[in-house]
Nucleic acid binder design. Structure first.
Lengths: 131, 131
DNA sequence: TAACGCTGTGTAATAATATAACATAATTAA
DNA sequence: TTAATTATGTTATATTATTACACAGCGTTA
């Protein structure tokens, strides 16, 4: 696994920002927030995001076009991601449940395709918002 | 359930196109294909897509920003969608498996959130491409 | 050490995806 | 038959993401 020390300057800046965020961040919001650190162009952000996704440090929330840090310390590369997304406050929680991931990868293996990875997004109201 | 006869003109044109397509269609490709039928602007397409999604006639493949017809005739409104996506040919197959959907909705109900719906995307190589 | 491959950076331009705002028409419900 | 709702048409613009090109740093290896 690639250690964080091996990340490049831009990758570190952007990972740091995402890890400190309380919720998902969008690419152009990231860009805005790192301008003072010398990152000026969308492509610089997208390149760092691509790399961070590749090594499993962050995930993309596909339905939101937003990015979150991986909360699953032993998840090296993201082959199996699941999230709970609040439709009211847009809070995102990473679901990490071994039984779930085994169930799903097993399901995929039996499906006839050569399975590589999956992404699952649950939508609803989070504990706070459902009150 | 809203019947197809109740769909508006634009909605019918766009649903018809998507149902006849062999794979997922992107919004601007839809736009291009329906120009001859008088639909000229992106918003006209997106409005029809929103409605068709709402009534469960089509689904959005979030990771691809593309749209497919619902193959699940008894799926009135899409609260539980799952797809297999080929990373080589980009073919998409809707997965409809009652055990899977029960497992996932049950999982979500126990998770603490007020569960509304989920979307699951499997990635890999389809039967043809894995050869 | 020099040539090479690989990864990352910087920059400008542009492509692709999606929505806001406003005006009007058609349909449905009271 | 008015009011509410849903759909349409149009222009403009916002948001998300990529292409293309030039170059820098670093480790390998020949």
């Amino acid at each position: 696994m690639q250690k964080q020390e091996n990340l490049s300057k831009n990758q570190k800046i952007i990972l740091d920002l995402i890890e400190k965020s309380s919720g998902p961040l969008k690419a152009y919001s990231i860009l805005f927030n790192v301008k003072k650190q010398g990152i000026k162009a969308p492509l610089q952000v997208y390149r760092a995001l691509d790399k961070l996704i590749e090594i499993g440090k962050i995930h993309k929330i596909e339905s939101r076009n937003a990015f979150v840090a991986c909360k699953n310390s032993n998840c090296q590369v993201s082959k199996a991601t699941a999230f709970s997304i609040c439709e009211s406050c847009e809070d995102v929680t990473e679901v990490s449940n071994l039984k779930l991931s085994k169930y799903l990868s097993n399901f995929a293996d039996k499906s006839g395709m050569k399975y590589n990875k999956y992404n699952l997004e649950f939508f609803g109201l989070c504990k706070n918002c459902k009150k």
